[in-house]
């Protein structure tokens, strides 16, 4: 839309906003609490590169902002792999210069050949894991072991369960429960899953992507759909909390770091990614966020007590790879969005 752009340039000049907007500070967007609290400050102290951290609640939120701004304003973003794929498809992701990220060598071989981006062309895995059930052993009548325990919960658990609200993971619970692919696009199957999830909605306390572990700790909820690492937050605060991968399986989710093509600080952005992949720094991240990181020396250096306290930290790369990875479903994303809207709108 050339006329718009000319107008925009004119407006920008008139308003005196041109140019300087791209500050020298590295802008990193990540989920809240998904890095060591001192990570950015330590990075700045060690490299002399000024950096700041912004938070996003969900993948969709940061994607919305990136698409609105044409990928401007951010240098490094943390997004889950299907969204990294989209950033790449849209031409918003910068091809990575491996020479500037020597620490890529620290990644497990599995993490360098992930389906969504073999060879880490545009994304670097930061953390990975499973999605399963997180529950209070003292509040559930019997330990859950199936997605059905969440979707059609025991009478005692009515109004005490939560599910993730974002399109992909909400649908994943329904798809996995029926033994289907987490990237299923068949309309009939999606319709079936929709009906299952609408039935499940009537038993829910809430949809929650950000505070479900707090609800578990306070006892507001007894059984929640959770990412393994986030269940660990609850385990850290309550002895009664357990995590289980349902017998039907899980997805393999991979959260990645992506450098934006519009970044004015690409050197610094690469330096940040490389710094994060340093065995010590990545281990420090894992210990803080209680998520598995795909970094071999970092995981090897983890305290054994940590894995004992948080058993899901011990899931091996081989087991992770036995689950199907969430992929960008392309055109079918419309059907996904609509299905989720239908679930949300149901009474």
């Amino acid at each position: 839309m050339p006329p718009f752009r000319t107008l925009g340039a004119a407006a920008t000049l008139v308003l005196g906003l041109g140019g300087s907007a791209a500050a020298q500070t590295l802008v990193i967007s990540n989920w809240d609490g998904y890095m060591a609290p001192d990570a950015v400050a330590t990075f700045t102290a060690q490299t002399g590169i000024p950096a700041e951290l912004v938070l996003h609640a969900t993948n969709e939120e940061i994607m919305g902002k990136l698409i609105a701004s044409g990928g401007r304003g951010y240098d490094v973003v943390f997004v889950s792999s299907p969204f990294a794929e989209i950033l790449n498809t849209l031409g918003l992701a910068e091809p990575l210069d491996h020479a500037k990220i020597p620490n890529l060598a620290n990644l497990y071989p599995e993490a360098r050949a992930l389906e969504h981006d073999p060879g880490n062309v545009f994304s670097v895995p930061y953390a990975w894991g499973t999605t399963g059930l997180c529950y209070r052993a003292d509040l559930v009548p019997e330990a859950p072991d199936s997605w059905a325990d969440l979707l059609s919960p025991d009478e005692a658990l009515r109004g005490r369960t939560t599910m993730l609200a974002t399109d992909r993971w909400l649908l994943a619970a329904g798809l996995l429960a029926r033994g289907w692919s987490v990237n299923e696009t068949d309309p009939d199957k999606l319709a079936q899953v929709r009906d299952d999830l609408i039935a499940a909605k009537r038993t829910l306390l809430a949809y929650d992507d950000t505070t479900f572990y707090a609800k578990l700790v306070s006892g507001e909820a007894a059984l929640v759909q959770a990412w393994d690492g986030w269940c660990n937050y609850a385990i850290a605060e309550s002895d009664a909390v357990r995590y289980v991968i349902p017998k039907e399986g899980s997805d393999l989710w991979v959260d990645t770091m992506v450098i934006l093509k519009q970044s004015a600080n690409k050197e610094a952005a690469h330096a940040f990614v490389n710094w994060m992949l340093d065995a010590d720094n990545h281990r420090w991240a894992a210990e803080n966020i209680l998520y598995k990181v795909p970094n071999a020396p970092a995981m090897a250096a983890l305290d054994a007590e940590l894995i004992e306290a948080f058993p899901n930290m011990g899931i091996t790369p081989a087991e992770l790879l036995s689950y199907e990875q969430l992929r960008d479903v392309g055109e079918a994303q419309r059907a996904y969005s609509r299905t989720v809207t239908e679930i949300m709108a149901a009474q």
Partner: peptide
């Protein structure tokens, strides 16, 4: 708890999450 859709919620979602 994310279980109710209002027009405002929908507009919000179209702009900030559904794109």
């Amino acid at each position: 708890g994310g279980q109710f859709q209002m027009v405002g919620t929908l507009v919000y979602a179209q702009f900030l999450t559904a794109g």
